[in-house]
């Protein structure tokens, strides 16, 4: 290899090193302890964590919070394998499994909100005022009778929202299997945003999280309206689970527990309660201790650190 080639490679290496140093001079902090939080994209998407993280890091300057987001499945895997210190999830059945098999130390609920059933403002199936299961049953009936007028668009992507939708179809006795074969039932196979756009285009109903819905209406991308926005079937509870240091000794349990405590502290709860007010005109979450959960669901469980 001649000198010219060596020089070229050296220059490339120097450029990359320079970029690297520049890119990490701000964020690299060797003396900070890392707190890794895994969460599903749907929570990350709302932007809430960004604000909580900033406030927490202000209070605990020695901790660098890193929020890892992926699909629901992989987010749980990260916890199961001890790759993160704390999980923020909203799937009660799986959370309880985590506690049972010893992966998580405890489960602390810190916020809740509701999935919304949204649809065209003229509400062709007439579901306004019903509860979620009744509404789904009505949509199925009207859709069957009048497939040109009444339609439903599903995400169909095995996301958390999609699995909740399936559960409601089954609870309403219509049966998820039956609706998938119907002409009034459409699957977008995409994320929430795209699904809302499709529903808007088709004048159809859909199940949405409130954050995405509000963001799309605010930008004028859709003209759908929220029709049912509460009730047990639509309740979405967010909980925090620190990973058990007995099982995964490398995890940063101290910082994890601090973060959980911060979430339920008055300061943390205030952030949660206000989040979204500015951007969407209404908050996206209800903090748990100040507004106790509706009596329909299991009472709040909040266990403090075993240490």
């Amino acid at each position: 290899m001649n000198n010219k080639n060596i020089a070229i490679i050296a220059i490339i290496i120097i450029i990359i090193a320079a970029i690297g140093i520049y890119a990490f001079s701000a964020s690299s902090s060797p003396d900070k302890s890392k707190l890794r939080i895994s969460t599903t994209t749907s929570l990350e998407d709302t932007g809430l964590l960004k604000e909580v993280e900033a406030a927490f890091e202000k209070k605990y300057p020695g901790v660098d919070v890193q929020v890892v987001s992926g699909g629901t499945g992989i987010a749980l895997q990260y916890g199961q394998r001890g790759d993160v210190d704390l999980m923020l999830v909203h799937d009660k059945k799986r959370e309880e499994e985590f506690i049972k098999n010893g992966t998580g130390t405890n489960r602390t609920e810190f916020a809740y909100n509701y999935f919304w059933i949204v649809g065209p403002s003229n509400d062709p199936a007439g579901i306004k005022g019903l509860n979620a299961t009744e509404a789904f049953k009505k949509i199925a009936q009207e859709g069957q009778a009048n497939p040109d007028q009444v339609k439903f668009v599903s995400r169909g992507d095995e996301s958390g929202t999609h699995s909740r939708e399936k559960k409601i179809w089954n609870d309403s006795k219509v049966g998820y299997k039956n609706v998938t074969n119907s002409s009034w039932y459409l699957e977008s196979g995409k994320g929430m945003g795209d699904t809302l756009l499709v529903a808007n285009e088709k004048n159809a109903y859909t199940l949405s999280d409130s954050g995405t819905f509000l963001s799309y209406t605010k930008d004028g991308k859709i003209s759908l309206v929220p029709l049912i926005t509460s009730g047990k079937a639509l309740l979405n509870v967010y909980a925090a689970i620190p990973i058990n240091p007995d099982k995964h000794p490398k995890t940063n349990i101290e910082a994890a527990q601090n973060f959980v405590d911060f979430l339920v502290s008055p300061e943390g709860q205030a952030i949660i309660g206000k989040y979204g007010q500015e951007k969407y005109g209404q908050p996206l979450f209800t903090p748990v201790p100040t507004n106790p959960l509706p009596s329909l669901i299991t009472p709040l469980v909040s266990v403090s650190s075993p240490a």
Binding site: V67, V68, K221
Partner: peptide, 19 residues
Amino acid sequence: IRGFTRVFTTTISLETSKG
């Protein structure tokens, strides 16, 4: 991870799903 490992493609998929 925001500010640490977020790159073009992960941002694009995240931001798109956020609308």
